[in-house]
Design a binder for these strands. Sequence first.
DNA 1: TTGAGAATGATAATGGTTATCACAAGTTGT
DNA 2: ACAACTTGTGATAACCATTATCATTCTCAA
Lengths: 131, 131
Amino acid sequence: MPLTAKQGQLLKELKRCKGELSGQDLHARLRKGSRPMGLATVYRHLRQLQQLGEVRCRHLPSGEALYAPAERDEHHLTCVDCGSTTTLESCPVHSVHLDAGQLGGFRPLFHTLEFFGLCGECQQRHQGAAG
Amino acid sequence: MPLTAKQGQLLKELKRCKGELSGQDLHARLRKGSRPMGLATVYRHLRQLQQLGEVRCRHLPSGEALYAPAERDEHHLTCVDCGSTTTLESCPVHSVHLDAGQLGGFRPLFHTLEFFGLCGECQQRHQGAAG
DNA sequence: TTGAGAATGATAATGGTTATCACAAGTTGT
DNA sequence: ACAACTTGTGATAACCATTATCATTCTCAA
Ligand SMILES: [Mn+2]
Ligand SMILES: [Mn+2]
Ligand SMILES: [Zn+2]
Ligand SMILES: [Zn+2]
């Protein structure tokens, strides 16, 4: 089941970009180039590419969804106060094995692992008040 | 830094409930009982309780945020097609250690680990079309 | 009692995502 | 080539969870 032209175009743009992109970001980029793509089509194909295991997605605390090629196995530390994020150097669960009993027929395509907490700056800022 | 009365009330309601609750769910429950709480206050305290490490939150593919006591270290298999979720029996990263170099001053409060893929039913449904 | 500051909540505003639906493009059969 | 049908597309409207606003209420120390 090869990707359609529009799906390939979208995935190519995602891969070209170093970081993660929101649906809106992606639409803005694709709209600029030749062969623009409507917003509805962007979201449609993002969902389809997820179901094909080509794209993964995570949600910021703000609720905004960020997309990236599923092959990028990256995870983050996110501050629950200021929202700043830093990327981990490696995936801590790269090797975890889920046995068939737990899977129960489920076929994993990708995973999200995110650590939430307080960044150094926000800890200092709250020190005075919270002790 | 003990919790305020309203914060405690909210956390108590979260703990009383077996599953995860959305902000709207929580507001609906609290509104029924004596001592109702406004929607704005619910969301305010959910954020504060997250910053205190008392509450964690994850996002469904739909974007809806679900909250639970942070002490509940649960993770899920979620179908990217029908959205059904099943809970894992144990946390695969319960023991992972992030070294100080990776943390860089960051103080972890909780984590989310979610596996996305296709449930058994959806795999069968797509078999005919996709081969 | 009184006034400053914090907490509360009804309501409006925001904005990312999804649903609609009319149209374009592709496919099949004759 | 043509009609009949299916699939893909995208401008727009609708949705709805979350956030911002702001007037009111509460807290508590002076
Ligand atoms: Mn990983
Ligand atoms: Mn865990
Ligand atoms: Zn921070
Ligand atoms: Zn499914």
